[in-house]
C-alpha cells in the first residue's frame, strides 16, 4: 500500500485528465491530428493505467467486463448505423449530406463524421481493454523471481 503511495496519488489525479484528453482528441479530430481511433486508445490507456496501479480486480469493478461486449457492438452499430440512417433518409450509404441540410455549409458532413468517429472510439477503447483483461486475468505460470 505505502510503497505505491506516490504512484497512486499522481495517477488518481492523472487518470481523469487522460480520459478528458482522449475526448479532446476525439472532438478536435476535425481540426488537428487525432480522431476516434487515437482517442479510443487513449481512453483505453487510462483504464490500463488504473489496472496497473490499483490492481486488475479493482479495475474490473470500475470497468466491468460485461460492458466490453456491449461497447464493442455499440461502436460498430454507431458506425454502420450512421450509414443506415443515411439510407433511410434517402441518400447513398454514408452520404452524410442528407443527415442535416444547410445551404451554405456541409453541416451533415460534420455531424456524420463525429458520429462515425464516436463509433470507432467505442470499439477501439473496449477492444483494447478486452485484450488487456484477457491477458491480465490469467495467472502467469512463472513467478516474478525468474526475471
Amino acid at each position: 500500500m505505502n510503497s505505491h503511495l506516490i504512484l497512486r496519488t499522481v495517477s488518481k489525479f492523472l487518470i481523469p485528465l487522460i480520459v478528458v484528453y482522449g475526448l479532446y482528441v476525439h472532438f478536435h479530430g476535425d481540426f488537428g491530428p487525432g480522431g476516434g481511433f487515437q482517442a479510443g486508445v487513449i481512453v483505453a490507456a487510462a483504464v490500463v493505467l488504473y489496472a496497473l496501479i490499483f490492481g486488475i480486480d479493482a479495475c474490473k469493478v470500475a470497468v466491468p467486463p460485461s460492458w466490453i461486449r456491449i461497447g464493442m457492438t455499440v461502436g460498430v452499430m454507431l458506425f454502420a448505423g450512421t450509414g443506415v440512417v443515411t439510407w433511410l433518409l434517402g441518400g447513398a450509404f454514408f452520404d452524410y449530406d442528407v443527415l442535416k441540410y444547410d445551404p451554405d455549409h456541409p453541416a451533415g458532413q460534420h455531424l456524420g463524421i463525429i458520429c462515425v468517429e464516436l463509433g470507432v472510439l467505442f470499439t477501439v477503447a473496449t477492444v483494447m481493454v478486452a485484450i488487456f483483461y484477457a491477458f491480465g486475468s490469467r495467472t502467469p505460470d512463472i513467478s516474478d523471481e525468474d526475471w
Binding site: R69, T73, V76, G83
Partner: peptide, 20 residues
C-alpha cells in the same frame, strides 16, 4: 440500386449484434 452495399453491410451489422 442499393443491393451491392446491403449485401455486405447487413451481415456486418448482424454479426456485431450476434456478439451480444
Amino acid at each position: 440500386a442499393e443491393a451491392p452495399v446491403a449485401i455486405v453491410v447487413l451481415p456486418l451489422i448482424i454479426g456485431a449484434l450476434c456478439a451480444l
